[in-house]
C-alpha cells in the first residue's frame, strides 16, 4: 500500500466525515443520557390504588396487556406501611363464609401468591392477638390488582401497590399496558429510589 489513489482518498475523507458526524450525535446523546429511565406506575393515578376510587371495577390491564406471558407488573407490599392485620382484606376474600377457625374460608388472590404468617410473640390461645406479615410471591403474582384494591383506604392502609419489575420489563417503546391503561398511570421516568 504505497500510494493512496484519489478514489481511496475521497473514500477515507467521506468515512472520516461520517465518523465525525456519528461521533457528534453520540456525544450529544451521551451527555444527555440517563441510565435508569423506565416505565413506572403512578399509584395516585392507577385506579386500583387511587384514593377515593371506590366501588369501581378492578382494572387488570397490567396482568392482561403485558407482552410477556407473566406480566412485568407485580403487587408490592410496602411492609413499613402494612398494618399486619389479623384479617387482611387483601389476603382473605372477606365476603366469604367464616370457617370454624373464625377466618374467612377463601383467599382473595386468584393465584394464591400471598403468604400469611404470624410474627413476633405468638399468642397460643388467641390468633387475633398476633400481628401477621403478608408476603407476595413475585414468581406467582401477575399484577391483577385485586389485593391492591382491597387494601386501599378506607378498607385498609393502602400498603400494597402495583409496580413494574424493571428486571423483567422489556421496556417496550409502545408499552402495551401503558396504551391500555385507562388512567394514563404509566409514565417513563426515573424510578423512585
Amino acid at each position: 500500500m504505497s500510494r493512496l489513489t484519489r478514489r481511496e482518498m475521497l473514500g477515507h475523507a467521506a468515512r472520516g466525515a461520517a465518523l465525525v458526524g456519528m461521533g457528534g450525535v453520540t456525544a450529544y446523546l451521551t451527555v444527555k443520557a440517563h441510565d435508569t429511565y423506565a416505565w413506572e406506575i403512578d399509584p395516585n393515578k392507577c385506579i386500583n390504588s387511587q384514593l377515593g376510587a371506590l366501588g369501581v371495577e378492578i382494572c387488570d390491564a397490567c396482568a392482561t396487556d403485558c407482552v410477556l406471558p407473566l406480566s412485568a407488573v407485580r403487587a408490592v407490599n410496602h411492609y413499613p406501611e402494612c398494618g399486619r392485620c389479623y384479617i387482611c382484606p387483601a389476603y382473605f376474600e372477606i365476603k366469604s363464609a367464616v370457617g370454624p377457625d373464625g377466618l374467612p374460608s377463601e383467599k382473595l388472590c386468584p393465584r394464591d401468591a400471598i403468604e400469611r404468617k404470624a410474627i413476633g410473640w405468638i399468642d397460643p390461645d388467641d390468633p387475633a392477638n398476633n400481628f401477621y406479615e403478608y408476603v407476595i410471591d413475585e414468581s406467582l403474582c401477575n399484577g391483577c390488582g385485586r389485593c391492591v384494591m382491597a387494601c386501599k383506604e378506607p378498607a385498609g392502609l393502602g400498603s400494597i401497590r402495583l409496580e413494574v419489575r424493571h428486571d423483567v420489563c422489556l421496556d417496550c417503546n409502545r408499552c402495551s399496558i401503558s396504551t391500555a391503561c385507562p388512567e394514563d398511570a404509566y409514565e417513563r421516568r426515573e424510578p423512585a429510589a
Binding site: Y79, P80, G120, W121, F131, D167
Partner: peptide, 25 residues
C-alpha cells in the same frame, strides 16, 4: 405509616423485611 405497628411493638426481635422493590435494571 404511623398507624402500622413498629418492630418494637411486634416484638420478639422482629425486623421489618426489605420491601420487594423492583430490582433495578
Amino acid at each position: 405509616v404511623d398507624v402500622a405497628p413498629t418492630d418494637e411493638v411486634i416484638g420478639e426481635g422482629y425486623v421489618t423485611p426489605e420491601v420487594q422493590r423492583p430490582r433495578s435494571l
